[in-house]
């Protein structure tokens, strides 16, 4: 039980985020209005995605240094959850944009960058399925994973900064600090980031355990 304290923390934080994110007072702002609450559900998806993909890359690097099936499983499952977070991030962002920018997709550089980033990782999954030999699959997808992550970072963090974005905090739009004069948003936002990221880690570990059990069962059948 002592090992599982972080799962209890995850449940508590997620419940807190759901409750506080929807019920707390938020600053009254033109255009944004109540949609500012999306910040507790949309922005943490990107934090979670980058952290989960980073974990995946670390496992890929470790795989190349010292190959083992377990490291490969970890790399792919963390990438899976990371991409799931990315998809949720795009969907929540589009829902939010419909109400604030007037349309779900408005050629915003950050939206485009996020879509390109997801394409990079979809290609990763296809590459994995194209390779048959399990060891070759693991090594080559580890190589591509490292390559993909190194490309993802400039896509997400450098390119959108070079042009004006409609996103809050970019292109002259006021960001977090300007809205959050009384630090009330922070009180929900930071726990939300931790909550969703931990939930992602938990999901990944569950998938890893299922996969390991499956391989174990397959091996014992032989």
């Amino acid at each position: 039980m002592a090992k599982n304290w972080w799962k209890v923390l995850t449940i508590a934080l997620v419940l807190y985020t759901l409750w506080a994110g929807l019920m707390f007072q938020v600053p009254r702002l033109a255009i944004l209005n109540e949609t500012i609450r999306a910040m507790h559900f949309h922005v943490p998806m990107w934090f979670g995605m980058v952290i989960l993909l980073l974990i995946s890359v670390v496992y890929s690097i470790r795989y190349l240094a010292k190959p083992s099936d377990d490291l490969d499983t970890r790399a792919i499952e963390f990438a899976n959850t990371g991409v799931l977070f990315g998809i949720l991030g795009i969907i929540t962002g589009m829902a939010w944009a419909t109400f604030t920018w007037g349309e779900p997709w408005s050629n915003d550089p950050k939206q485009n960058a996020a879509a390109i980033g997801l394409l990079v990782y979809f290609a990763y999954f296809i590459l994995r399925n194209a390779l048959e030999d399990p060891q070759q699959k693991a090594r080559i997808s580890a190589i591509y994973n490292i390559f993909a992550f190194s490309v993802l970072i400039p896509i997400l963090f450098i390119l959108p900064r070079l042009t004006d974005s409609l996103h809050p905090g970019n292109g002259g739009n006021p960001g977090f600090n300007a809205y959050d004069l009384d630090s009330k948003l922070r009180l929900v936002f930071y726990p939300a980031v931790i909550a969703w990221t931990l939930l992602g880690v938990w999901m990944s570990t569950l998938r890893i355990r299922t996969k390991n059990l499956q391989t174990f069962l397959n091996d014992s059948e032989k």
Binding site: L119, V120, F122, A123, A130, F147, V151, P154
Partner: peptide, 20 residues
Amino acid sequence: SKAGNNATLMAILSFPVILP
């Protein structure tokens, strides 16, 4: 080339990477 020189694979791997 390790994955059997699949032309589709080359395209889908390189397009998103080269896009930025």
